[in-house]
């Protein structure tokens, strides 16, 4: 009985449609991670600077994202952008915006922590060579910080990938939304199709995230 449902995956263009949906999730995650890491690096560096006001603002920014669930963040962007700011973007862009801001907040904290754990002596020996502040960050502090923070960054990436599952809430045609459509369309013919479609999506997410978390874990074991 249940095994007949597997056919739903391969009837018509269903499998291809699921892959297209998956690709949407992947590029939204990838783009958000890239943008978020860039902004987060700048915020993280600023959070190690002496200026108290900037530090305080960025701290509050980070804490807001720590308090709010990503679903809520996504809906804030989804409703505020068009209704209060009259910006009408497609759902995919709004998702990239929400996720990027979230990644930036989390990454700023990772960068700050890593920068602070680079020994002070490294900073001084850079200064003693006449490096400017910018050069010091670019060639000495940030490369060392990135190495320290790589496992945490990979873990953040796995969370972003998992969080793309909420894209369906704002009607983005992601892998889950496509899956639901396929399930509804084939409910009569394949009543157990739901099992296979969600099973496949479960598997998709697992093969995206599992290698990354294994990588992060092995890096962490090496750092010990």
């Amino acid at each position: 009985m249940a095994h007949s449902g597997i056919n739903v995956l391969f009837s018509g263009s269903n499998f291809d449609r699921l892959l297209v949906g998956l690709w949407t999730s992947i590029w939204i995650a990838a783009l958000s991670i890239i943008i978020g890491l860039l902004i987060g690096t700048i915020f993280g560096v600023l959070r190690t600077m002496p200026n108290k006001i900037i530090r305080c603002i960025l701290r509050v920014y980070m804490e807001i994202f720590r308090i709010l669930p990503s679903v809520v963040l996504l809906y804030l962007v989804y409703y505020i952008l068009p209704r209060s700011l009259h910006i009408n973007w497609p759902g995919t862009w709004m998702a990239v915006l929400a996720f990027s801001l979230w990644v930036a907040a989390e990454f700023s904290d990772i960068v700050r922590g890593a920068l602070q754990s680079v020994p002070l002596a490294q900073k001084e020996s850079g200064l003693a060579l006449g490096l400017s502040k910018m050069q010091l960050f670019l060639y000495v502090l940030l490369p060392q910080a990135f190495k320290l923070e790589l496992p945490a960054t990979i873990n953040l990436a796995t969370r972003v990938i998992k969080t793309t599952s909420i894209l369906m809430l704002i009607s983005v045609m992601d892998v889950i939304n496509v899956g639901q459509q396929i399930i509804e369309a084939n409910n009569q013919k394949f009543p157990t199709g739901v099992f296979w479609v969600y099973g496949l999506i479960f598997f998709f997410y697992f093969i995206l995230d599992y290698p990354l978390s294994v990588w992060a874990k092995s890096l962490m074991a090496k750092q010990k």
């Binding site: 490294q122 020996s125 003693a128 000495v140 490369p143 060392q144």
Partner: peptide, 17 residues
């Protein structure tokens, strides 16, 4: 500092280079 160099007790070479 480009004219006055300094060498430290703990060497402090950059480990990433």
């Amino acid at each position: 500092r480009q004219k006055i160099g300094m060498v430290f007790q703990s060497y402090d070479l950059f480990p990433n280079l």
